[in-house]
């Protein structure tokens, strides 16, 4: 366990700066977006719904940024792989450690979103109910700032969807990082994690919920299966 935790720490150190950078950028962008949203609503030139509509896109952009930061880092630098592969820890375990790290990062991202929504809603409360949604994580405030609800029960499926997407995306990021690190695999190998992230981005925009969920699950299973088979393949990763 000590070996696994030290490996986890070393992997995390590779990309945590990138993760913090994404969170910082998201914080700034969302503050600006909320201020703009307030200005638009007060000016009355657009409907409230129109002003709200760009918020999910901002969140989706942050999710994509997080995905790229994790793919680029997560302990997969070209150099450190030489050390990792000299350890008595199997490649499969190494992949799972990285996947867990990526999943935790996405969970951190969602948590950050919830906190941001809560804070911004609190400081930007007007005469009516305020409801801010970062990809279905809901925070509602009443006029007096009283916390009305966080994640209402009626949205429990949406919460589950979020949790599933966090797990799927974390696995996909770890898998893609491995593929890029080793510079191998046909294009189709990259298509699976890319499909996961695209489906995540689309899930609140165009495509029906059930369809996205089913497709995501299929992609995730493919991704996990292929990563586990690949990492447990044999000693030596070079495909040339």
């Amino acid at each position: 366990m000590k070996k696994i935790s030290s490996l986890f720490g070393a992997c995390a150190a590779e990309s945590f700066a990138g993760v913090l950078c994404v969170l910082g950028c998201m914080g700034i962008v969302e503050i600006v977006a909320f201020v703009l949203r307030g200005i638009i609503r007060d000016a009355g030139s657009f409907g409230e719904a129109a002003a709200d509509s760009f918020l999910p896109f901002i969140c989706a952009l942050g999710y994509l940024g997080m995905f790229l930061a994790l793919v680029r880092g997560s302990g997969n630098s070209r150099g450190s792989r030489y050390t990792v592969r000299r350890l008595r820890v199997s490649e499969r375990t190494t992949f799972l450690v990285r996947a867990v790290y990526c999943i935790l990062c996405f969970a951190l991202f969602i948590l950050f979103q919830a906190v941001m929504i809560f804070l911004l809603a609190f400081f930007y409360r007007h005469g009516r109910y305020f409801s801010g949604g970062a990809e279905y994580l809901f925070v509602s405030l009443r006029a007096d700032g009283f916390l009305y609800s966080i994640i209402p029960l009626k949205d429990i499926w949406m919460v589950l969807m979020n949790a599933a997407c966090v797990v799927f995306s974390g696995t996909a990021a770890a898998y893609m990082a491995v593929l890029i690190r080793d510079g191998i695999g046909p294009i189709i190998s990259y298509a699976v994690p890319v499909a996961v992230i695209l489906l995540f981005l689309m899930r609140s925009l165009f495509v029906p919920f059930v369809l996205v969920f089913v497709l995501l699950t299929i992609c995730w299973l493919l991704c996990l299966y292929s990563a586990l088979v690949y990492s447990g393949d044999k000693w030596g990763w070079d495909r040339s």
Partner: peptide, 17 residues
Amino acid sequence: IARLSFGTCEHSFFPGI
């Protein structure tokens, strides 16, 4: 393999620690 060590100009350390 732990009986072998490798120092390479491609580097095998973790840059972030």
